[in-house]
């Protein structure tokens, strides 16, 4: 195994762990805002790590560029979407969960 491949493996493993953790959080967290919290962060970070990992093993420049581009688009789009979702939820008076609430549903 070459060095690049080891680096890639490490990045991929990290990205993987973060993504799955985020997904687990999305599943287990008690209310919308907390889920948003886990999902929004892990999404961006996890995908970024995986894409970075892949760049190392990609031989040609065009593909590397494309990878960077996808990562960039996601870096722009995902927060935008998260922002918009939050705003919409807030506008519609979705109350955050506080300790002691049973389920956190409004």
């Amino acid at each position: 195994m070459q060095v690049t491949e080891i680096v890639t493996t490490v990045f991929l493993a990290l990205g993987c762990i973060i993504s799955v953790t985020g997904a687990y959080g999305l599943l287990r967290m008690p209310d919308f805002y907390t889920r948003l919290h886990t999902a929004g962060k892990t999404d961006s970070l996890g995908q970024l790590l995986i894409f970075i990992g892949l760049v190392f093993v990609t031989p040609d420049l065009l593909t590397q560029l494309k990878l960077v581009m996808v990562a960039l688009i996601l870096m722009i789009a995902a927060p935008t979407a998260t922002h918009a979702i939050t705003k919409a939820a807030h506008l519609h008076d979705l109350r955050p969960w506080t300790k002691g609430d049973p389920g956190g549903e409004p």
Partner: peptide, 12 residues
């Protein structure tokens, strides 16, 4: 009226 969306849209 939402500046984030407007800017992102104009860019993309």
């Amino acid at each position: 009226d939402q500046p984030v969306l407007r800017v992102v849209a104009k860019m993309s």
